[in-house]
Amino acid sequence: MNISPAGQASPLPRKRTALFWASAGCAAALMGVALWMLAGNPAVLGGHPLLPGILLAAAAAGAAWAALLWLRRDVPRPRSRVRAVGAWAGSLAVLALAAGLAWLSPFAYQPGPTAEAGPASDLTVTETPTAITMSPDGGTTKGLVFYPGARVDARAYQDILAPVVGAGYRVVILKEPLGLSLLDGNQARCAIEANTDVTSWAVGGHSLGGVSASSFALNNTDATGLVLYASYPVESLRERTGLSVLSVSGTKDGLSTPDKIQAFRELLPPDTEFAAVQGGVHAFFGDYGAQPGDGEPGISRSAAQQQVAAATISFLERLPGSR
């Protein structure tokens, strides 16, 4: 606090006090959100390392800011409207950062009945910081690289894609930076180059992941198949020769609605195969629980996923190099 000429203590100005507590609150919010995500969501530490790295940096920055505020709590500061406006703007920016980090919290894998019953076939699962690879016993020369939906745990697709592995395909599920495939749309290339024994590749994705898979397939001719789960491209694939496409959607999907699937149909090749899961919703294409904005299902998750897996296997088996 300030000391008056008469030796009496005078309180801090009210504006400075309010700003101090606002800044302290912002520091605590930044640190709290980061620690909450790191400790409370297993998908954070199990996903791509970029998000945990950012969260650790945010927690450290919040702690350092709080400590600096406390150490300088009694240091007199000249009154300035510009300084006050800048300080308030900085506090609001930190709050926005904390809110953005909270939004990035991924939908964690929630094992369903399929996982509880155990794998339907023998397979080997290996995990790296950027991918989950599932391989059939005995090896294979056929593969599928899969882009998860936005902010969805890569492990949430293990069960729905396990039957594909049982049919003789290696499946590589990508762990996307910040859970957003658009930040590294060419990530499938790394998976293909890391699996040199696979000579026939398809790419696929769910929702936003399907958008990235479509762009990759458009620009990489070594992908002969494209599998879209509740998704559609944003660039035309009609001139892309040598590419077969499967689009699987749900009739009750509240996000990639049937109307959207139909509206973007003209961007797909004329011979695209379409499969609709009657009563299926957006979140049934993985195992991560319910999703805000989704529709009300008219079928069980397990029944829907059986249809999705069957359509995927049937499609992949007809690709060149898969016979």
Rank of each mutant, 00 (worst) to 15 (best):
I3Y: 10
I3S: 09
S10R: 12
S10Q: 14
P11T: 13
R16P: 11
R16S: 15
A18T: 12
A18Q: 14
A18D: 13
G25E: 08
A27R: 02
A28S: 09
M31T: 15
A34M: 03
A34E: 04
M37T: 03
L45M: 12
L45P: 11
G46H: 06
G46W: 07
G46N: 06
G46Y: 08
P49W: 06
L51V: 02
P52H: 03
G53R: 00
A57H: 05
A57Y: 08
A58I: 09
A61L: 07
G62N: 00
A63Q: 06
A64I: 08
A66V: 09
A66W: 03
A67N: 09
L69K: 03
L69C: 02
W70A: 11
L71S: 11
R72I: 12
R72D: 15
D74K: 10
V75T: 14
R77L: 15
S80D: 05
G86N: 04
G86C: 06
A87P: 14
V94H: 07
L97G: 03
A98C: 02
L101P: 06
S105L: 10
S105N: 11
P106Q: 04
A108L: 07
Q110N: 09
Q110R: 11
P113R: 04
T114F: 11
A115S: 10
E116K: 14
G118N: 01
A120E: 14
T124S: 13
E127T: 09
T130L: 14
A131R: 14
G139V: 03
T141H: 13
L144N: 01
F146N: 05
Y147N: 03
G149E: 03
A150E: 10
R151F: 13
R151C: 09
R151T: 15
V152A: 03
V152C: 05
Q158M: 13
G166F: 00
A167P: 02
Y169H: 10
V172R: 00
L182W: 14
L183E: 08
D184F: 07
N186F: 14
A188H: 08
A191Q: 02
A191S: 04
V198H: 01
S200P: 10
A202T: 05
S207Q: 02
L208A: 06
G210I: 03
S214L: 01
L218Q: 10
N219G: 11
A223V: 11
V227W: 02
L228M: 01
S231I: 02
Y232R: 00
Y232I: 07
P233T: 00
V234K: 15
G242T: 07
G242N: 03
L243K: 02
L243Q: 00
V248K: 05
T251R: 00
T251S: 06
L255N: 05
L255M: 08
R265V: 10
E266M: 10
P269L: 00
P270A: 09
D271T: 02
D271H: 10
E273H: 10
E273L: 12
F274L: 10
V277I: 07
V277T: 07
V281A: 07
H282V: 08
A283P: 07
F285N: 02
Q291M: 06
G293M: 02
D294R: 00
E296A: 09
G298Y: 00
I299N: 08
A303F: 11
V308F: 00
V308W: 01
V308Q: 03
A309Q: 06
A310W: 02
A311W: 13
F315K: 01
S322K: 07
